[in-house]
Design a protein around this nucleic acid. Structure first.
Lengths: 252, 252
DNA sequence: ATAATTGTTCCGTCTCATGGAACGGTGAAC
DNA sequence: GTTCACCGTTCCATGAGACGGAACAATTAT
């Protein structure tokens, strides 16, 4: 419970990594300006990272190195369902032509472990591994609606309901009503709650123990996501795909 | 030049990450057994990582968290050629049905920034971002053969020629003869030098400045990689694909 | 040429990371 | 049910080592 004590040098190290992440590369002084430590300290931290190939130095610019790709790939492959997720997402992307993603929950936030642009798939700055607030995403809402009630409450308590677009649901009561609807109907919509101009449909995907494995999501521009196609056929299709996926997972 | 001084706590932190990477999850005592520090120290490092979502704790097990996926994705997307590489690799995988990958060089080691299994694509434990020795891979040899001579020499000096299978070329003279052949003929073979039972063909891919951007590789089981198909058609096809890729890159 | 930045190294100081011991909780053994 | 063993976590005193600031080197701008 108590906030265990942490290691200061580690925290600055991570902070430096964060800066390199945000800026996509920075010099010693750049970093020192942002992270409140002396240049020499920054330099030593970067030297340590460089020694272990965590950052690459090009001229005076330091940037995150391929070691992170390695670690990231590891995290993704550790997840046993990843291979199945990949083909699931890919098939649906091909079928629908839209952007398709699979979101999982960790620490109360959502992470896409795989995504795919279909032929018509629209921008959306979703990046594999980028963490997003669950309530801002159709897939996240599908997850929230299917977690044990107290877990959902704990997540909202911890992370709040920050706004991302004017459409984002920031009122707790409203969200809970929305989740209730999602539970009843079996799938979730998002109407520009994450990115304006984009609508999404998502269904929950269960794991073998009946827990929630993640959320399967299709995103498209508003004009293409209206009407029967969006409101009936697509959700039904996704529910079927999720069910099939769950069956595949159950006899592994 | 001089080995700049590094930060000890950072190094243990990275060492701990490495352990979690190798084992795919470990308890405090597990880590303390391997990394020569006290349990309390390990605990504090892990607590720090956990606080920032770099590790996830499940029961008593700590494992690398999705934060690394995020960072890894960032590294990959920063690379401007990534998007083109993706479609290049994917097309060839579809065409050949085999495993296809794109290897780049950093710090004298190779990293796959994208790979794809075709319909028949065979196992190969290649994992995105995993770092491998260049001389153990057809793609790596294609790169080594096309780097400036002194850079190639420096890489061999630094990393040596460790064996991975009995087929791996560990003799420097032999490797240099091999590279010479590759330069002349324009593409590289590997006959089980990385994984026994797998043969590969690879071609170098140049960047806009005429430098070497990476190596494009096709891997398959020995029995499927023999004969004319393997020895003539496939290399020619890859050379064509690489050329087309280079053209696409030149007018961006 | 000079000045103004940069990254890097050096050094003395005092913070803070460390190991060891104590605590609390959980599960196996008897 | 009680004991024992082993786990993660917290506490504390101590000395290693992370830190800031100054000096140096190497570029680039003026």
């Amino acid at each position: 419970m108590a906030e265990s004590d942490t290691i200061k040098s580690d925290e600055t190290l991570l902070e430096i990594i964060e800066v390199l992440y945000d800026r996509g590369g920075a010099t010693v002084t750049d970093v020192a300006d942002v992270v409140d430590v002396s240049k020499s300290t920054v330099h030593r931290h970067l030297a340590t990272l460089q020694k272990h190939d965590y950052v690459a130095k090009e001229g005076h610019e330091y940037a995150l190195g391929f070691r992170f790709l390695d670690l990231g790939g590891h995290v993704r492959h550790r997840n046993p369902i990843h291979k199945q997720v990949k083909s699931l997402v890919r098939n649906i992307a091909e079928e629908t032509g839209e952007f398709v993603g699979f979101l999982v929950e960790e620490h109360g936030l959502g992470t896409y472990i795989y995504s795919e642009w279909g032929s018509e798939g629209v921008g959306n700055d979703v990046r594999i591994g980028r963490r997003i607030h669950l309530h801002q995403s159709a897939a996240g809402k599908a997850i929230l609606a299917n977690l044990p009630e107290e877990r959902t409450a704990a997540i909202i308590d911890e992370h709040g309901l920050p706004e991302r677009t004017p459409k984002t649901i920031t009122d707790r009561e409203e969200l809970e009503r929305n989740l209730e609807t999602i539970r009843e109907r079996g799938y979730a919509y998002a109407h520009g709650e994450h990115t304006e101009g984009l609508w999404a449909v998502a269904v929950p995907v269960h794991d073998v123990n009946g827990g929630i494995a993640g959320g399967l999501l299709v995103v498209g521009p508003t004009y293409r996501m209206r009407g029967e196609q969006f409101e009936d056929e697509l959700p039904e299709y996704l529910l079927g795909a999720a069910k099939e996926f769950e069956l595949n997972m159950s006899h592994l």
